[in-house]
Amino acid sequence: KNPAVYLLQPFHSTTTSTMRILVGVKRVIDYAVKVRVAADKKGVELNNVKHSMNPFCEIAVEEAVRLKEKKFATEIVAVSVGTKQAQETLRTALAMGVDRGIHVETALRADQELQPLAVAKMLAKLVDKEKAGLVILGKQSIDGDNAQTAPMLAALLGWPQATFAAGVEPVDENKALKVERETDTGSEVLKVNLPAVLSTDLRLNTPRYATIPNIMKAKKKPMELLSPEKLGVDVTPKTSVISVAEPGKRKAGIMVESVDELLDKLKNEAKYRGYDQRLYPGKRVGK
């Protein structure tokens, strides 16, 4: 292709080929932190605990940035719903290559009070407002472990979805995406018409680190402040946590010295010991 076509594209992009990607980012307790149940047993302790961007959201940001580098997208907007500190997470996304941020501020606890359906409704409003042509979200956040927001958003918009994406390729002159997605038994390839919602799985890419110059640049990138009220979405929680408990612990086992001893234990002892120890954590709750 004539390189001049590429050079001209930015000047024409506003009138001919705008492709804006909306990417969701969530601030969660860092994946390496061992979470602890708070003293009041109403949730886990959030104070003085290291937080970072949800790992699957990092993959979502990375994929959006790659799609822009490939000239598929013209602009990337990152959205984070959460407390004031969610802005730090947005800055990280901006430093990775996102163009601008939208912070929807709420005081709700992001792990249990801010719920996926409410988030999906807010994202749907923002998709309309921004005229986004593609939304990329993480497949799940590692706090609530719900894995719900992406398909909900697709449903609210009436768009196709490709969850657990492991490979994304624009096809049909950028009118559709070919997506390899993880399944229970392997993987499958779908073609989704655009606009669409994607959710990212582990193998999709390896997110880049933000460089110092890009972190500096990110501080100057625009960030819009919104609220659920301004978006007209009721975020009243539909489910509420009555109590949170530590999981049931397995009894410590024994160390064996050799493969022979291991086999002996498995044959003569394990079938009894094992069944006794079958403690489903749920059964220990509320005892």
């Binding site: 886990v44 249990q112 706090d143 509420s240 946590v241 220990r284 709750v285």
Partner: peptide
Amino acid sequence: PMYAGNAIATVTTS
């Protein structure tokens, strides 16, 4: 479970 099973929540829905 939440948090990879490190917190077990009892949840009620309206």
